[in-house]
Design a protein around this nucleic acid. Structure first.
Lengths: 159, 159
DNA sequence: TCTGAAAGTTTTCATCC
DNA sequence: GGATGAAAACTTTCAGA
């Protein structure tokens, strides 16, 4: 699965697909200046290369009832490979762990938890963070307002 | 646009759609135990209620070339409504601001920036955070590994 | 190798029960 | 909620640049 070379049209298509993937091949072709079949071929290429990981419905966290989001920072006990692996396996096993980033800086991981309320949050946080091994400390910031929630990535701008 | 009552099948459908929205109505019906037309009606209801905000393609940040993610915490100068509004307008105007959360706790906002490299990051961070008004301080944690990146929300579990 | 077009298939949509 | 027919979209194939 080699790296895929992207031209200007690819960047346009990927931007469009990240905004709204429900458009038809014809509509995408119109916007990108390409025929529907050409658009389909390119999208197939993105999928085959793993560049497009999946297509999903995004819920509005303000509309979903009883959603509680929390941003947690996590510092591990020690920088051993085993501690990292154990931590990753544990958070990845929990479907309410929405996002996990291994970071450099003040902490080792930033984790976003998505639960259905404070009771649920305590349950998940306890299992994943509080009563878990290898964790030196963690902080919790509850989300008051999810101002923007996207996963949009830039594709390299052509020069 | 009233709040929508969800039953067990709705929760199953919403979970499925958040995992993979490319499935056909027939496939969804099979999994949820419903006819294709009933599935279509329910999905239409989610859209009308704004519960499903949009459908998007998700890129793999590890496969996308030259993607640099950073998690920033931001503390505003003062807790005035104007300062918050000014900050929100500025970050929302920038497409490389991937996520923004207003939080309670150690800081006021958690921001995730998605750029095409360090030069680009500096440019965006400078515009949005460094040379911006109303910001008392901010921290930057660069992402070494995006272990999990989803926007999956739980829908309330039926009792 | 990539594009565009046409034929054949599947899915979706709207209306009915 | 389920079923049917019409419309639309997608997939495949093929020929040209």
């Amino acid at each position: 699965m080699p790296r895929i070379a992207l031209d200007d049209i690819d960047h346009a298509l990927l931007a469009l697909l990240q905004q709204d993937s429900a458009r038809t091949l014809a509509a995408l072709g119109e916007l990108a200046g390409l025929s529907p079949s050409a658009v389909q071929r390119r999208i197939g290429r993105y999928r085959d290369a793993g560049l497009i990981d999946r297509t999903v419905a995004v819920l509005d966290p303000r509309k979903a009832v009883d959603v509680l989001l929390a941003v947690c920072t996590v510092t591990l006990d020690r920088e051993s490979v085993e501690a990292h692996e154990e931590f990753r396996a544990r958070v990845l096993a929990n479907p309410h762990v929405q996002q996990v980033y291994n970071v450099s800086g003040d902490c080792d991981y930033v984790v976003i938890l998505a639960t259905t309320g404070m009771a649920h949050h305590r349950e998940v946080a306890d299992e994943v963070l509080k009563s878990a091994p290898n964790i030196r400390r963690y902080t919790t910031m509850f989300v008051l307002d999810p101002v923007r929630t996207t996963l949009t990535l830039p594709t390299v701008e052509p020069r």
